[in-house]
Computed example of a mutant assay.
Amino acid sequence: MDLASHIRHVPDFPKPGILFYDISTLLAHSDAWRETIDRMAEAIRPMQPDLLAGIESRGFLAAAPLALALGKGFVMVRKRGKLPGRTVSHAYALEYGEDVVEVQEGMIEPGQRVVLVDDLLATGGTASAAVTLLRKVGAEVPGAAFIIELIGLGGRARLDVPTETVLQLEA
């Protein structure tokens, strides 16, 4: 199945000059969405995860059904202030300023194998920060998986874990 044909391209979103790759059209097509989840599950299974960690917010859309398909748990990696209770955070640099990602304290036990999942790998900044955060709470991170990788933005090179993608598209 040509999954790329189910990705809508939205020019100048969220700001002028940005081409947004919208997975909403993929999600709306049940056969294409099932194929996406099946391909991602096949790529993740050899990593032998105990848990999947999805990056806010579209990463949740992929990580939750993948966790269910693989019979594994799911944890959320969110921006600062979005999770209840005690959290562990990691600040990272952006082009202009910084951002913070968090996980809930106690959701990941030291030594658990946690695979990172998101919809899109672009520059890799947030994904790299999420890997660092997962390690900070004691996780072993055997890999990461994405629906789309934007080739030419260097995201894969910023990750020091094996990285799987379903689609590779030009940036």
Rank of each mutant, 00 (worst) to 15 (best):
F74R: 05
P110W: 12
F146T: 04
F60P: 01
A157F: 04
D22G: 14
I18D: 07
A157Y: 08
E35V: 04
A4M: 13
D118K: 07
A28P: 07
D119H: 10
G143C: 09
A139V: 05
L26W: 11
S89V: 01
V137R: 05
F60M: 13
E140K: 10
S24C: 12
I7K: 10
G143W: 01
T25P: 06
Y96I: 09
L116V: 05
I44V: 14
L27R: 12
V166T: 10
A130L: 06
R34T: 14
G106K: 09
M76F: 07
A145M: 04
M76S: 06
A28E: 10
A64I: 15
V141D: 03
V114C: 09
P49E: 09
K82I: 03
V88D: 05
R158K: 15
R135T: 03
L3R: 10
A129L: 09
G125Y: 13
V166N: 00
A53M: 05
D99S: 15
G54R: 00
S5L: 14
E95G: 11
G17Y: 12
S30V: 13
Q168E: 15
A62H: 02
I147Q: 03
I37N: 03
I148K: 01
A32Y: 04
A129Y: 02
F60W: 03
K82Y: 04
R34P: 02
T25I: 11
G152C: 11
A69R: 15
P142W: 00
L150N: 01
A122K: 10
H90W: 08
L150K: 08
G97I: 08
Y21N: 13
Y96Q: 07
F20N: 15
I151C: 09
V114N: 02
E164Y: 09
L68K: 11
I44G: 00
A144H: 00
R156A: 10
K72I: 08
I37R: 12
A67P: 04
Y92D: 03
L83A: 07
L159C: 03
P142S: 07
A127I: 05
E35T: 14
D31N: 06
W33N: 10
V114S: 06
G155V: 07
I148W: 02
M1C: 13
